[in-house]
Computed example of a mutant assay.
Amino acid sequence: MKKISGLLTVSLLLLGALVFAQKQQKIGDNTTNIAPNAVLELESSTSGFLPPRMNHEQRNAVSASPGLMIYCTDCGDGQFQVFTNVNSWSGINSVVDVSSVPCGAYVTAGVYKKFMCYNLGATNTLLDPNIPVQAIHGNYYQWGRSAPVANASTSSAAITGWNSVNAANGSWADGSKTAYDPCPVGFRVPTKVQWDGVLANNTVSRTGSWTNDGNFSTAISWGPNASTKTLTLPAAGYRIGTDGTLLNRGGSGFYWSSTESSTYAGSLAFGGGSASTTNTNRTHGLSVRCVSE
């Protein structure tokens, strides 16, 4: 007897339910007495339901619709996940319900803006965004370019073939989202003014050792008070613009803005005792935290 995959079986049954709108389906040891409010019921005292299993890279390649469910084998310790109506995967058995985390900050007095909960390129977006670990450090980007130049797993050594030429003026822009902006739909690289607003209108707190030893457990946070964190940025260091060598991870963080400044570009820079906006060489590789458009 040939086996049919669980996904195909369910798909065929649901198709049958659509064709025969009033017909209900029951599969299992006892196929009588289906629940009156169920279009499909599985019944067994000896077996379980096994959904499609895949790693997070395979999951991300799926053209998903809200409600689609899979088992992600390398998300945390492995977990059931469902694709939500906000176009993201959420863990059914996740320790943290990230959909309820109010990620964002005040960018001016009384004006709250939503930020993505994780650095762009984070490999596990089901973890607590306020507890810094390697999986939420994300990628490094050169200003004005959409492709990452390194990630949190890349060696700290110089990178062969590093591009030391500045991106052209207008590659990113304050007034509108350009084609080179790496952020997903609905988000963009923040402006320098928005980063200044975060600094001026939120309460700062810090986590970790603030030592330049390459650790992943150091971060700065903002929120309405010191005990409430709504925007946490890992101290991911930066990739130097001459050859891509990683510097200062664990001791400082550098995040791009979309704002041009002569041949430089604006960025947010912070360490264990300071945080400010500055102008940075465009060929450096910095972190990106996207803000809602």
Rank of each mutant, 00 (worst) to 15 (best):
145 R>H: 09
289 R>W: 11
28 G>N: 09
227 S>Y: 03
103 C>A: 15
36 P>M: 01
244 G>R: 08
124 N>M: 11
273 G>S: 09
212 N>W: 02
229 K>Q: 06
189 V>C: 03
102 P>H: 10
191 T>P: 06
93 N>W: 02
116 M>Q: 15
160 T>E: 12
150 A>P: 05
184 P>L: 03
86 V>R: 10
210 W>L: 04
65 S>L: 10
277 T>S: 11
259 T>S: 15
54 M>I: 13
91 G>K: 01
86 V>H: 08
51 P>F: 10
35 A>R: 15
241 G>H: 00
172 W>R: 07
91 G>F: 01
286 L>K: 04
107 V>E: 01
226 A>D: 04
291 V>A: 06
182 P>Q: 13
203 T>H: 10
48 G>P: 05
89 W>N: 02
120 L>G: 05
21 A>H: 12
33 N>Q: 15
104 G>W: 11
72 C>G: 07
213 D>E: 01
185 V>P: 00
257 S>I: 07
56 H>C: 06
23 K>S: 14
89 W>C: 06
186 G>C: 00
173 A>P: 00
68 L>R: 11
46 T>G: 01
17 A>H: 15
247 L>P: 00
159 I>K: 13
269 A>P: 00
146 S>W: 08
18 L>K: 14
41 E>D: 13
103 C>Q: 10
184 P>R: 03
179 A>H: 07
185 V>A: 04
59 R>A: 14
255 Y>S: 05
213 D>I: 01
47 S>D: 08
106 Y>A: 10
72 C>R: 01
63 S>M: 06
278 T>I: 13
168 A>W: 12
121 G>M: 12
152 A>P: 00
110 G>A: 02
169 N>S: 15
22 Q>L: 05
